[in-house]
Amino acid sequence: MKRIYVREEWCLGCRLCEYECAYANSGIGNIVLALKDKEIDPNVKVQTDGKITFAVSCRHCDEPLCISACISGALSKDETGAVTVDRSKCVGCGSCVMVCPYGAVRITKEGTANKCQLCMNNTFGEPLCVKKCPNGAIVFEEK
């Protein structure tokens, strides 16, 4: 399947991916209206080990621990292999957060789980973090 991969040596740490992600998943058609004066809670987060920066989002694992721990059936794999979340089913127990070794699933302030769904659940249909990364540090490809 096509997945998001990070070429960390190219990451500038600019966090544009975080803003593009928040915009892509806002449901608002204008980036200014979507983000102005708002605290963002994106599905991709730029992290650093002090020397280098890298953008972390769901790996869409072959054997996802988050799905094995999900008591509500909110997390599942779709036909493409992407790990998706049905927030209407989620009860917010946080079992997915307890097991994801990437720290890539979170409970939002609404009290339910959220994570990267490769922008397949929004109008963009392709990962906006990848499309807008100015340095090609995030790619979307089949490996």
Binding site: Y5, V6, Q47, D49, R59
Partner: peptide, 19 residues
């Protein structure tokens, strides 16, 4: 966060060579 994993392992995981 991911910075606590060994750098080589993290790089391979993010780069798709390893889970």
């Amino acid at each position: 966060d991911l910075s606590i994993y060994p750098a080589e392992e993290r790089k391979a995981a993010l780069g798709g060579k390893y889970e």
